[in-house]
Design a protein around this nucleic acid. Structure first.
Lengths: 118, 118
DNA sequence: CTGTATCCGCAGCGATACTG
DNA sequence: CAGTATCGCTGCGGATACAG
């Protein structure tokens, strides 16, 4: 029935979840949506708890999905800008809808967890 | 700035992502939304690629957040029913909005990845 | 400045066996 | 039927050092 959802290769849900469901992707997408254009180190400063490695690899996978565009300026020292693609922008409203739900329900859920723990 | 998002304890986004961002939660929520009421083994049969352990622990965490309600019938053999709570139902539209986006963009994203890999 | 390379710990998850 | 307990693997992600 819904077993198709469990098939990573051919399931749209799994496919998107594997992207935005990781630790940093959604955060970076929302950040880029607010700031429009950012350099590598600007993102790093805005999210200073992310490691350089994860910032780099997360940006790569977002670029691979064409959600984020990477623009290199052949200068020394190097300058690289990141911004949302049209596809990336089209995802934002859905993410924000989730964020809103999470914000509204955050406190109640926290309380439910405390109750459950007892 | 957006560093608050990186704080697991107090960040609504992280909080919700930690829930639905795992391997099975979103799938189970959508399944329960379609079927209304399901017993443990019914869910297991619908998603036969999930292990008993993960089904059990995922349902527990969904119950802890009061997204899913667990109803036990004191019979032998035991009978347990799962269904969405009102809070769980309120999350569904946002999940489906993501699913729709994923379905629409699935093929294009797959192609982008192939291109990127070259 | 914008990354890569390497090492490694830990948590998520699966497989299997067992229980009330 | 509806779970728990235990073991073990895998890969995400962090820390650190290095590179163009």
């Amino acid at each position: 029935m819904l077993n198709k959802f469990a098939d990573v290769e051919n399931c749209p849900i799994r496919n998107i979840l594997d992207r935005i469901g990781d630790k940093w992707s959604m955060l970076i997408l929302l950040l880029l949506n607010e700031e429009q254009v950012m350099r590598f180190n600007e993102i790093h400063k805005s999210i200073d708890s992310i490691s350089q490695k994860m910032l780099s690899s997360t940006l790569k996978s977002l670029e691979a999905d064409d959600l984020v565009q990477r623009k290199i300026y052949p200068e020394i020292p190097p300058k690289v800008e990141y911004r949302l693609t049209e596809r990336g922008k089209s995802l934002i409203p859905h993410l924000q809808s989730l964020v809103n739900w999470a914000s509204v329900n955050f406190e109640d859920i926290s309380n439910s967890r405390l109750q459950y723990a007892k």
